[in-house]
Nucleic acid binder design. Sequence first.
DNA 1: ACAGTACTGTTCGTTCTCGAATGATCCACC
DNA 2: GGTGGATCATTCGAGAACGAACAGTACTGT
Lengths: 162, 162
Amino acid sequence: MSIKPTAEILGEQKVASLPINREAMALVSNLHRASSLIRQHFEALVLSTNGLHWSAFVTLWCLWIFGELPTHRLSQEVGIAKSSLSSILNDLEKRGFLVRRTPPEERRQCLVQLTAKGEQLLSDIFPRFNEEEAAILVGLTPSAMAVTTNLLRDLIAKLDEE
Amino acid sequence: MSIKPTAEILGEQKVASLPINREAMALVSNLHRASSLIRQHFEALVLSTNGLHWSAFVTLWCLWIFGELPTHRLSQEVGIAKSSLSSILNDLEKRGFLVRRTPPEERRQCLVQLTAKGEQLLSDIFPRFNEEEAAILVGLTPSAMAVTTNLLRDLIAKLDEE
DNA sequence: ACAGTACTGTTCGTTCTCGAATGATCCACC
DNA sequence: GGTGGATCATTCGAGAACGAACAGTACTGT
């Protein structure tokens, strides 16, 4: 059983007289809090060892999954501004994990791809990363996880199309 | 029905041969993405008008709900580092939304409380904020929301106690 | 051909956030 | 009653992320 934290309970009292959607409030509040804690958790336990922060890791992960990508696609997939991606790529390229190239047929674009060193890095890190993912979710029922994942997907789709 | 984005499908292929927990991967990935989009959404639509960013709003909200709080409690509730809170309080105090005071019996501490102006601000903003919360969640079933909220609460409790 | 428009990725300046170091206060103990 | 260690909040410097402005490239219509 989940126990509501004090803030939620007091919040319900405070807004009792207002036309407030409490379920929405609780969901949004917990969503952001969980995300922030997870990020800190992974950066401290798994990523910092390799000198990566969250967005840099996700960038590498996307390239690992998708193969070569143009930067504007990549920034969408990672979920960060293209300007943020640009400096991340500068760093990761300097460290030899990926390469940028300009396709001759479209010289505005910039295609990004992992190097062998980058592939190697992800083959090493990802199992460790996923192990930790599984660890923090242990004890949660598969059906609750499925419901949550689907709800988040719907939410992302709705917010993304704006 | 939720449709899996391409990255998830490709990801499943990539890791098919590894001992990977795919449900955990999908959940963590979507969780962070949704949180980030929600934050941007609210900052752009509701908070920026009042010159607030997410953490500043949550800070005010906590004080609204709890009443006067010591800063170390407040930083826990908001979920940010105490140094981050300190600069947020500097700003909000300068703008007259809250006051700090030192209790005579414990002069190391610092208690924070909303001013009348701060109370007024939240009474204005919060209904608008919650309205938008409800709007982005429209179409989701109450039971799915309840399951998600509980799962997130459990997750937060586990990560918090470390 | 050429001008205008649209699109690409990068750089720049600003803001948010954190951890480490700092300064102030309290308490336990000799 | 003074001293050392613990605890509190703040300041400081560095890193991460963003939007706006920029420079280069491609396409469109005349």
